[in-house]
C-alpha cells in the first residue's frame, strides 16, 4: 500500500511541477494561450512516443538504444512512400510502417534472446544498422506526407456544447497521443502479458520459476517498443511534413523522461503516465527558456545538462535502493 502511495505520490508531484511550470510560463509570457499549448502538444508528440517505447522495455528490465534510429527509419520510410502518392495510399502506409516498427522491434528482442548478448550491446548494434537503413531509404531530408495525416494533429477538437474558449485548449495532437497510448497500454496493463513484462523486469529468475515465458515476453516487450517508436516516427513525419534520416535527440530524452517519470532503470517498477508527464515537464522547460529569449543553442546546452542531471539522479536513487 505504501508502495502504491509512493508511486502515485511521484506522479502527483510531477503533475504539481507541471502546473507550477505552466504558472511560471504564464508569468513570463502573459499572452501564453491555447495556441501555444497546441504547439506544445505537437512538439511533445514524437518525444512522448519515444518515451513510451523506452518505458515498456525499461519496465521489462532492459534498455533500447535504437529508439531514435527506429524513429528515423520509420519516419523516412513513411515520408518516401507517401511522396507523390495519393491521399488514400497513406491509409496503407500507416499500418505498414507500424507493422515494420513492430517487426524490427521483435528482431531486437529475438537477437537479445538468441545471441544472449546484453541488450545494451544488441540495441547499440541495431542503432548502427537502423541508422544505415534510414540513410539508404533517404540520404537527405525529403519526402512528403498526406494532407489528412497533417490535419490529424493540427488544430483543436471541436466538442459540441462546449464554448470555444475551452475547446481551444484541447489540441488534436494531445487527443491522438492519449488515444494511441491508451488503446495499447491499458489492455496490456490489465492482461497477463503486461503482468509478465513487469515480472521479468522485477526478477527474471523468479518470473521464470513461476512459469512466465521469459524469452517470449522479452521479445514482445521489444516489439511493442518498436511499435511505439514507429508511432513516434510517424508523428515526426506528420509534424514536419518530411522525413529526416538523421536521428534526433530522442534517445537521451527518452531515458531522461523515463527516469524523471519514476520508472526504475532496474525494471519492474513504474507506469506510463509518469514518463509522459515528465516529457511535458521537459518540453515546457524548453518553452520557458525560449520565452526568456535565451539563445537556442544555449537552450540546447541547458536542456542537455538537465537530462544528464536527471539521469545521474535516477542512477543515484537506484544505487541507494539496491544498497538498502
Amino acid at each position: 500500500m505504501s508502495h502504491l502511495l509512493r508511486r502515485q505520490g511521484w506522479v502527483a508531484g510531477l503533475f504539481a511541477l507541471l502546473v507550477a511550470l505552466f504558472i511560471i510560463t504564464k508569468l513570463i509570457q502573459p499572452g501564453y494561450g491555447s495556441g501555444d499549448f497546441g504547439s506544445l502538444a505537437r512538439a511533445v508528440l514524437p518525444y512522448a512516443f519515444a518515451v513510451a517505447a523506452q518505458t515498456v522495455v525499461v519496465i521489462a528490465g532492459g534498455i533500447d538504444l535504437s529508439v531514435a534510429a527506429m524513429m528515423a527509419l520509420t519516419s523516412v520510410t513513411a515520408a518516401s512512400m507517401m511522396n507523390g502518392a495519393s491521399e488514400e495510399y497513406a491509409l496503407f502506409v500507416v499500418p505498414f510502417v507500424l507493422a515494420m516498427g513492430f517487426v524490427l522491434g521483435a528482431v531486437n528482442g529475438i537477437l537479445i534472446v538468441v545471441t544472449r548478448v546484453p541488450d545494451i550491446v544488441v540495441t547499440l548494434a541495431t542503432l548502427f544498422v537502423l541508422q544505415g537503413a534510414a540513410l539508404l531509404v533517404l540520404d537527405a531530408p525529403g519526402g512528403a506526407v498526406a494532407e489528412w495525416l497533417k490535419g490529424l494533429i493540427s488544430g483543436t477538437v471541436p466538442i459540441p456544447g462546449l464554448p470555444d474558449t475551452i475547446d481551444a485548449w484541447l489540441p488534436k495532437a494531445l487527443l491522438v497521443l492519449v488515444i494511441c497510448l491508451c488503446v495499447i497500454w491499458i489492455p496490456l496493463r490489465r492482461s497477463k502479458l503486461g503482468l509478465s513484462i513487469y515480472a521479468i523486469g522485477s526478477s527474471e529468475l523468479a518470473a521464470f520459476r513461476s512459469g512466465v515465458p521469459v524469452a517470449r515476453t522479452r521479445i514482445i516487450a521489444y516489439a511493442l517498443s518498436g511499435l511505439f517508436a514507429a508511432f513516434g516516427g510517424l508523428a515526426l513525419t506528420m509534424s514536419t511534413g518530411i522525413g529526416a534520416p538523421i536521428p534526433g535527440p530522442y534517445l537521451l530524452a527518452s531515458v531522461a523522461a523515463v527516469v524523471l517519470g519514476g520508472v526504475a532503470l532496474g525494471g519492474g517498477k513504474g507506469g506510463l503516465l509518469g514518463p509522459i508527464v515528465a516529457v511535458f515537464v521537459l518540453r515546457l522547460v524548453r518553452t520557458d527558456l525560449t520565452l526568456l529569449a535565451i539563445d537556442p543553442n544555449v537552450t540546447a546546452i541547458i536542456e542537455g545538462a538537465i537530462m544528464v542531471a536527471v539521469v545521474m539522479f535516477g542512477a543515484f536513487i537506484t544505487m541507494r535502493g539496491r544498497q538498502s
Binding site: T115, L127, F128, G132
Partner: peptide, 12 residues
C-alpha cells in the same frame, strides 16, 4: 548507409 549497417552487424 550500407557501411553503417555493416559496422553494426560486425559489432553484433
Amino acid at each position: 548507409g550500407a557501411r553503417r549497417i555493416l559496422f553494426g552487424l560486425i559489432v553484433l
